[in-house]
Design a protein around this nucleic acid. Structure first.
Lengths: 222, 222
DNA sequence: CGCCTCATTGATTCTACTCAATTCGGGTGG
DNA sequence: CCACCCGAATTGAGTAGAATCAATGAGGCG
């Protein structure tokens, strides 16, 4: 589906360098490493790991964004989560990954080998529980909310994770948003247009959303 | 919505007693306690804990089934997971529960106070990761599969968790199944009827499903 | 036996999907 | 600098699938 980019470049840089924005809620302020680690740079749409691959590390987004997803045989895709700067992902069970992970755009990912240990289990568990709560909350959005409510919830979530109270920078395409929200690209686009015509948002460009009426969006999703 | 049952009765009984069936896959064979624990009995639809409640324990189903769910302001409900005998639930983040937990029918729940510790973090993490994988897989079902595929996936999941290769005992009502699969009760019922008329399943009664053609169900959900 | 809840079935509506046609925006090359 | 190109996004028309509204049927319990 996506062109495979060149091999990721790796580079050892000080922990925390290149961080783009403040830490999001519900994620540990920093993921304590108890072993050597490095930052790997990925091009847009480049694979970080594949479903079924043997798991060997945890990952923390340094800059950019990552999508985790799963596919059906006929190509239908469900993105289970986006991860942005500061967030930890790459949890496995049974010793293998159950999902694909790809860079959304150019991204830097810090890699931690030897995931959970005696000294970092608390951080690992916290990050896993945060991911669990997120996933279960997302189930409510996808299972019981309509298109407008889903898009509103998505924008509010992005605002919060970017510590913004107006403008949201979308790292991902409409297709990605659709596959995250369980909608088609057309429905996502129509919903954005509807929000625009109602004066709830303004679109500087397709990737930049200025939220005018936060209250109205909040009211939509309880 | 549901009648509140009488206060749960508690009783100290030996660990493992009263277990109804074999352990499901992806769950530790037993959740090692490093402190005193007890089994609490709940009536059907009785609340185990509420959203927003301060979290203080982990729980393991001894017998019966539990539903975890979340509500929208207008009453729409999404069940994020069912848990049956042997499974651990009750994870929290930020020190509080983000969901409601209720007994589906009469159920016995083993309560572990003081959740994660130096000695049991591995089991806790494994159980949390199993729940995370389950939740993310369920996102694919709800986000990208149609009604028939959702019901087929549900039946196969239940078969596997009950270690059955024919008959599935459903602990929950059609309403519960609908709220789990993001469908209405009518759509769930129609889908069961369609499966029945196609010879894929037989319904001894509304809660007992005999799966005739496992392969056909498998083929539906890839 | 009758009541009450849950489940099934039917008729109709409506939301989001599908298919299709432009439009937009960013990048490239003349 | 501008014209062109290509993928992404938007918009439109028609359709399909699940929701809604409504009526009937089946168990379980007092």
């Amino acid at each position: 589906m996506f062109a495979q980019a060149a091999t990721a470049q790796t580079l050892n840089i000080p922990f925390g360098a290149g961080r783009h924005r403040a830490e999001p809620r519900r994620t540990p302020a920093s993921f304590s490493p108890d072993q050597p680690h490095q930052v790997v740079f990925y091009d847009a749409n480049e694979e970080i790991y594949a479903q079924g691959e043997q798991a060997s590390a945890l990952y923390q987004v340094e800059f950019g964004a990552v999508r985790l997803y799963r596919l059906l045989a006929d190509g239908r895709r469900q993105i289970s989560a986006f991860h942005i700067a500061g967030e930890v992902f790459g949890f496995e069970a049974d010793g293998q990954h159950h999902f694909f992970a790809e860079a959304v755009g150019h991204a830097g990912i810090r890699v931690f080998r030897q995931p959970a240990s005696e000294t970092n289990w608390r951080q690992t568990l916290d990050a896993a529980l945060a991911a669990l709560v997120r996933a279960q909350e997302h189930l409510l959005v996808i299972g019981r909310q309509n298109a407008a409510e889903r898009v509103a919830a998505f924008l509010l979530d992005m605002m919060e994770r970017q510590n913004s109270d107006r403008e949201v920078q979308l790292a991902m395409s409409r297709t990605d948003i659709g596959d995250y929200l369980g909608l088609t690209i057309e429905t996502v686009s129509r919903t954005f247009s509807k929000f625009k015509s109602r004066g709830l948002v303004r679109l500087a460009n397709t990737r930049t959303v200025e939220v005018i009426d936060v209250g109205a969006l909040r009211a939509m999703c309880d």
